[in-house]
């Protein structure tokens, strides 16, 4: 389970962001997690809830957007989603595919609160 070490890294970014923006609290965190990123959204959520206690993101709500896998064929240009992990172009059978999305693991956006005006 490497979700915990990913969340540990996430919290380093979160506290840096809070400092930079002079925020008192982080109230929302949105992640974009690819279907083939290698992490399980549910485990990420549990790790986040475990980790946030006593941090600046103690009351933060975590939103995980799961990104489906999409590829483009470099031979014929066809674009499509990938089900059941068959990495061959459905149009021309070329194996030369570019992954457009679905492997990412990204902190997309955070919501911050500050006490001063």
């Amino acid at each position: 389970m490497h979700e915990l070490s990913i969340v540990a890294g996430l919290f380093e970014t979160l506290s840096a962001q809070a400092r930079e923006n002079r925020a008192a609290r982080i109230t929302g965190v949105t992640l974009r997690i690819g279907r083939l990123s290698g992490v399980v959204p549910e485990l990420l959520e549990s790790a986040f809830d475990m980790y946030k206690k006593g941090t600046i993101a103690e009351a933060a709500k975590l939103t995980v957007e799961v990104v489906p896998l999409r590829v483009r064929c470099r031979a014929c240009g066809a674009e499509r989603g990938v089900e059941s992990y068959v990495f061959l172009c459905a149009a021309c059978a070329s194996p030369d595919l570019e992954i457009l999305q679905g492997t990412e693991m990204i902190l997309e956006r955070i919501e911050l609160e500050s006490d001063d005006a």
Partner: peptide, 17 residues
């Protein structure tokens, strides 16, 4: 109290990469 939305777009594995 002020609230603010920040777009971060940071790779969670960026440090390792």
């Amino acid at each position: 109290m002020a609230t603010k939305d920040v777009i971060v777009l940071a790779d969670l594995l960026g440090t390792n990469k």
